[in-house]
Design a protein around this nucleic acid. Structure first.
Lengths: 147, 147
DNA sequence: ACGGTATAGTTGACTACTCAAGCAACTTTA
DNA sequence: TAAAGTTGCTTGAGTAGTCAACTATACCGT
């Protein structure tokens, strides 16, 4: 039960710090970063909006609004699907990929630093393990695109 | 590093569910609930806005806006401090305390259920332990007011 | 082929925060 | 005892998301 309170506060606190940094250094929101990240690792660097919504834990309308911004910034583009006229893919542009690479090292570094400041390696491993059992955990891979 | 991604998603997913339930059953937002909760356990059931901000991981303006709502709903009231005219306490009203009690059992039940669905007791204990080492962890007590 | 239902996405109105700026009351210092 | 600085809180404007309602396309049974 303490676990829940701590989950809330730990996440809120760390997220706030990291978001501020990401914003200051690269002009990206946390969610925008996550978006570029999942797109970069997706097949063909594109994803249906609906899949994006699931991965980012956002509603479809949230995705629409998010992508509006990213498209305006030239980091992604809208690509129509040939076989289903309803779906439009979010396609990572080269600029978007570069942006991600620029932001990636700094950001993952900060995340790592923040965790390692408070936990040792095996504890982090344990934590990942435990959190992985909670809902919302779809499998992912490593930290760096092109890594 | 996976830990971070999972922390984000686990929290987003669970929070979404629990918030919806809390809203449907008691008309409270997650943050409102947390507020009532920390006030109930505070000395004299009141807290300075600035302290509230720290505990809820909110900015002062966020607290102002939040308390506006809670005060309008009669769950808290504004009480001026006698020795320092700048500070105004948020004082939990009886109605607020009752509201908390009503919401408390259902909510803590849901939280517990959600965790226990995926983790066993010792894992939950471990998780709480690990999250407790992350920033933002100030000590708290048990789950139920008056408990 | 055609009506019914499900799915993908968008839009308008709203909520819950944030930040930057500001005011008021307190403290320090000289 | 007054200027300068600090602290507690509020306010205006903006951002990021939500929900409910909508359009458009696709699929399915008859």
């Amino acid at each position: 039960m303490r676990a829940w309170g701590r989950l809330l506060r730990a996440q809120a606190t760390t997220k706030r710090e990291l978001a501020a940094e990401l914003q200051a250094e690269h002009g990206l929101s946390m969610t925008a970063y996550e978006t570029l990240y999942v797109l970069a690792r997706a097949d063909g660097r594109r994803l249906k909006r609906v899949d994006l919504a699931e991965r980012l834990v956002l509603t479809p309308s949230g995705v629409t609004r998010l992508l509006e911004g990213l498209e305006a910034a030239g980091l992604i583009e809208k690509v129509a699907c040939e076989t289903d006229l309803r779906v439009s893919y979010a396609q990572l542009t080269d600029a978007g990929f570069e942006k991600l690479e620029q932001a990636s090292c700094g950001h993952t570094g900060s995340v790592r630093a923040l965790f390692e400041e408070h936990l040792d390696d095996s504890e982090i491993e344990q934590l990942a393990e435990l959190l992985g059992k909670l809902p919302g955990a779809l499998d992912e891979g490593q930290s760096c695109p092109r890594g």
